[in-house]
Design a protein around this nucleic acid. Structure first.
Lengths: 211, 211
DNA sequence: GTAATTTATGACAGTCACTGACAAGTGACA
DNA sequence: TGTCACTTGTCAGTGACTGTCATAAATTAC
């Protein structure tokens, strides 16, 4: 598993090159002012190839965040079944930050740069939220499975919606200063989670609580 | 003010005709399968004119929901300053339902039909959430103003994000059966608001609570 | 009432995101 | 080394969206 083969390595290289080139161009001249042709030209690749790596233009900026969400989903699946839903979700969110702290330095820088571009570009921010919502369905399914509740139960929807709100405040609404540093991001997430816990009644995310 | 002038009346008529035609086509053949040219042709208007009424294709389905958000903002502004933020936001949300219940029957039907199309179309659902998020900034500003907190205070962000989450669960995640009836929508909103209140500690949305 | 002015619309040309199809090049593997 | 699978470039096309200019209709001035 050490070497994924030359072909696979080339692909990853092209993918990262496209992301880097796109982020640079987006920062320089703005997102809408940048054409896919420009990005492709910067990596010396045909525009058609760009769309073989990324389904849409916004994807090139959002794919890293999407990877983070996959990490979160995976972490959630490993949490013990008797853990309270909101607690399990909190740990899953922390896993994303941990992944950044432990990962390659270049990868972390790229991730934070992507966040910077996303926060500065309304269209990308919108896309980011869209992804978050799509992911919400999967989170709801997982929480619902853990709790054994039916698919039309309000509680899982409620818990996940609330958690997503907290995560958004923690992750996305960062001050520009916070964007430089992963640790600042982690601190922000923690303080938001603390605020959430101090605002909610104990056991609120368990069925049968509101008597 | 009774008569806004012939020109203005014509414009409103065209606007509603475009919305109705678009919603019908979206329901019949799906959103992406419907072209702007088709919508324009159905109303006997040039495609260029369509874009003079709606900035984007998705706008034609989302504009009614956008109107609802304006109503909410306006209602929020009239709430007493000493009212707790979440309570004020809840009343503002109720104002949207009230507006539907009291409004023209055709308008209500159109609104519910738009919701139906939006819920059935991922792209439109995403756009709907996007609008909600964009609106969040204005809600935060208003809550922040009411509370007299600084712009970098976490609490207004937190309160509004939580409220948006609740509103989404109440408004958007409706069962198909609920879409026929405004009263069912109202009931759903109320039960979600109740769930939220029973989950949160009293005074959580006021500054200085979590000692 | 008619003339002047504003405003909505249509027609046309153009940009850009995105896609299907086919041909050519390159790594994988026997 | 030769075959196979996969990746890429080229090309042609669709559809969303925009700028521009001329025309027609509504509003206002006279």
């Amino acid at each position: 598993m050490r070497r994924p083969g030359l072909r696979e390595r080339k692909k990853q290289k092209t993918r990262l090159a496209l992301i880097d080139a796109a982020l640079s161009l987006f920062l320089e001249q703005g997102y809408e002012a940048t054409t896919v042709d420009q990005i492709a030209a910067a990596v010396d690749v045909s525009p058609r190839t760009f769309f073989r790596y990324f389904a849409t233009k916004e994807d090139v900026a959002l794919s890293l965040a999407a990877d983070g969400q996959e990490t979160m989903l995976a972490e959630l699946a490993t949490r013990p079944a008797d853990e309270a839903p909101f607690t399990a979700l909190s740990h899953a969110a922390r896993a994303v930050v941990t992944m950044l702290q432990e990962g390659d330095l270049d990868d972390t820088a790229r991730f934070l740069r992507a966040r910077e571009v996303i926060d500065a570009t309304p269209a990308l921010f919108a896309g980011s939220v869209r992804r978050l919502m799509e992911n919400e369905r999967r989170l709801i399914a997982e929480i619902s499975r853990r709790q054994g509740t039916g698919p039309d139960d309000l509680l899982p929807h409620f818990v996940v919606a609330l958690f997503t709100a907290v995560a958004r405040v923690g992750f996305e609404l960062c001050e520009p200063a916070d964007l430089d540093d992963v640790n600042a991001l982690a601190a922000r997430l923690e303080s938001t989670l603390t605020l959430a816990e101090s605002s909610l009644r104990p056991g609120w995310d368990r069925p049968g609580h509101p008597v």
